[in-house]
Design a protein around this nucleic acid. Structure first.
Lengths: 244, 244
DNA sequence: ATTCCAGATATGTGATCACAAATTGCTGCC
DNA sequence: GGCAGCAATTTGTGATCACATATCTGGAAT
């Protein structure tokens, strides 16, 4: 796909520029914790890994920079954003405010169809938790929450929430598979589902709040002691690791 | 500035790419209501108006697209985002949640230096209100709120809040200079200042909430009746108006 | 052996070109 | 006079080139 073929002849079926594809690919990767905090990247390296020219990557990175996922240092070097402890607390508080709002609204707009879907996503989450499959759990977790918040029918707020998810994504590579956390998290998830089934807005908000606080505690325990965690995540010097 | 001068020889004093300058320029313009909702723009037109090549404009627009200020239609046409009534309510609710959080935190972190600064910004706001200077009022209003939220020392949350401001910016071109609204708004602002001076977090949150609800009511009164407002804001067909 | 400097490479940024799709404008026909 | 259809222009997107600066590599001097 490196050759200068003018365009794959997809005429109009996909209103989906290459920059958009790169954007979603990188965004999903960040949320799923496939990039380490502080990791250095290069436009050309990413372009080569994705089989495109640097141009779409540049535009995608600009969008992700606007969302705070990546940053260009003072010397115009590209790296994955590394959240500090206080910043992580800010994200936590903002998430509680916004996701609590969405959960409460979702509870009042649930229908029978949503009940079945949420239950199904919850079960999938349970499977990943039982298997201690952390990447799978992370992915299923985002899907679970996103589906709930979509029911709230507030896409703009959901967009802001997803921006916060992008910020905390890289932090997850620092946490080890912690059975205790998984169990507590699943407890909160069960209470979220219960509240939604009973159309109980305040209870849904409370359960979501607990879930977020639980995750934040788990993260801050690692973030606040930078020595050990950093040395694992950013091994001395890495030459252009991309792999997307 | 259209000539191909390689670069103005500013070596390192300004770590500020042309794309960043364009970005801030456009962002400020959107927040200040210099773009009408639904207004069509072109990359080349903006570039010419700003005296640069299309490239920095492209990157700046990508960032602003990520923030929701502009959108590329299904036919890849660029336009200013037009918020619907429900979307406007979503922004309102999210602002109440986030800005309430910031106001409460700001109240607990105020110092004497902040007192003087906030008072000064409030006075400037009062001057614009008395003169019925709507653009000046809008500008001073954002500065006033931003300064308060900076005191909260939560830059990530402030960034999210500013994203919401960018979204509602274009709506302000639809509201006429409304003396009643200005008076009510200034009343809320006075209560914000009072609460901050007394380091009263809950009162600050309540006052900020009133301010936001007040502004939202003012906007929704115009947005919800699309006929008249639209015809004023988007006169039939406008050929490539840029003027930055 | 360590340090420091110069050449070489890598990298972000801006400009320009090419191209496909869409919009526009004009012309002719009914 | 109104409207359909075709040509010309516009416009977003991707690719490539140029350039300034940062970063890296290698070796020489102490």
């Amino acid at each position: 796909m490196k050759d200068t073929k003018p365009l794959p002849p997809l005429p109009s079926v996909a209103r989906d520029s290459m920059a958009d594809q790169v954007y979603r690919h990188l965004r999903d990767g960040v949320m799923a914790g496939r990039f380490a905090p502080g990791q250095r990247l290069t436009i050309r390296g990413l372009a080569e890994a994705l089989g495109s020219s640097p141009m779409p990557v540049r535009e995608a990175l600009r969008r992700l920079q606007a969302e705070g996922a990546f940053e260009f240092s003072d010397t115009a070097r590209l790296s994955v954003v590394q959240l500090s402890g206080p910043q992580l607390r800010d994200v936590r508080d903002a998430r509680v405010a916004l996701e609590g709002l969405l959960a409460e609204r979702a509870a009042s707009r649930m229908t029978g169809v949503d009940d079945a879907e949420i239950t199904q996503l919850y079960d999938r989450l349970q499977v990943a938790a039982d298997a201690l499959d952390v990447p799978g759990y992370l992915s299923a977790n985002f899907v679970f929450h996103r589906r709930i918040y979509e029911i709230a029918q507030a896409p703009i707020i959901l967009g802001a929430v997803e921006n916060f998810w992008v910020l905390i994504g890289p932090c997850f590579v620092l946490v080890a598979p912690d059975a205790t956390h998984l169990r507590r998290s699943m407890d909160a998830h069960r209470r979220i589902v219960d509240a939604l089934m009973h159309r109980d807005g305040p209870a849904a908000r409370a359960a979501v709040t607990d879930d977020i606080m639980q995750a934040a505690n788990c993260l801050s325990r690692v973030i606040d002691k930078p020595e050990k965690a950093r040395s694992v995540a950013a091994p001395k010097r890495r030459r252009r690791d991309v792999s997307a």
